[in-house]
């Protein structure tokens, strides 16, 4: 089936912009990015849109469709009725560059602030040995394509620009959680997560999980476990006492030299 769809696309830059109306052809099996490309090809050659793989794996074409953070390439047009207006805007949590392209450098800054994987002293790359059962939990987080839709939808920074300094956002708190669960990471990341990366700002409203195109359970499997680990370290004297008496520190949080 081919039909003419009504699209409203945000056009503008940092100084000004607004939603502009277009009537554009839609064919069976197409996704929103196909329609945006047809718009570029036929009506608006200067429309700026960031894209790359068209397969939901590069995380480039993040935008908001009818107000919901989504990948343009993974949103099928048959989600919408033929008479429905489809509104496409850039991500609203980040500064706009032009049209549908935003400046996501906030995320790169946050990524740089997280200390890298820290293997135990004396273990060289190539000597890492881990049981599969110990690493499979955090492998879920490696599916992240860094589309930053979770960062975009998180109200902590979306609705409060002033929190961007203190809050790393769900994508990078998930990274900290992944490293903290890593059986060979020797760095204590719990207090850092709370005090330097703003884990306490997260109020677990699960929007990050709802918008993740990879279906990662960010809240249940990364953020809440990290909050519990922070509570172990910072807010629970019984766990602290238990770790001192039973010397469980190495098993619960620390790294172990392979074979030791």
């Amino acid at each position: 089936m081919t039909y003419d769809a009504h699209f409203r696309v945000w056009r503008g830059d940092t100084d000004a912009g607004d939603l502009q109306d277009y009537i554009v052809e839609v064919n069976d099996g197409e996704v929103v990015l196909d329609v945006i490309h047809r718009l570029q090809a036929t009506q608006t050659p200067d429309l700026a849109v960031r894209w790359n793989c068209k397969a939901g794996k590069c995380g480039s074409c993040s935008a908001e469709i009818n107000g919901r953070p989504r990948l343009l390439c993974m949103t099928r047009m048959n989600n919408f009725g033929a008479d429905e207006t489809v509104t496409v805007t850039p991500m609203r949590a980040f500064p706009v560059v032009r049209d549908l392209v935003t400046d996501v450098s906030f995320n790169y800054t946050k990524a740089q602030q997280i200390p890298a994987f820290a293997p135990p002293v004396g273990v060289a790359p190539g000597d890492y040995r881990m049981a599969q059962v110990d690493v499979e939990r955090s492998q879920e987080f490696r599916k992240c394509i860094e589309c930053f839709l979770c960062q975009d939808t998180c109200h902590v920074v979306r609705d409060h620009e002033e929190n961007k300094q203190a809050f790393a956002g769900p994508r990078f708190l998930m990274r900290i959680s992944e490293l903290d669960m890593h059986p060979l990471d020797s760095r204590d990341r719990k207090l850092e997560a709370q005090d330097r990366h703003g884990l306490g700002y997260c109020n677990i409203t699960k929007c990050c999980t709802e918008v993740c195109p990879e279906g990662i359970h960010i809240t249940d499997n990364a953020l809440i476990p990290l909050k519990e680990r922070v509570a172990d370290r910072k807010y629970d004297p019984l766990v602290w006492l238990g770790s001192k008496i039973f010397r469980r520190g190495s098993s619960t949080g620390g790294a172990r030299t392979p074979g030791a």
Partner: peptide
């Protein structure tokens, strides 16, 4: 999700 909240400031569960 993606609906602006009405509060002017937000400190979450930090305090």
């Amino acid at each position: 999700c993606a609906v602006a909240e009405p509060h002017r400031r937000y400190s979450g569960e930090t305090r």
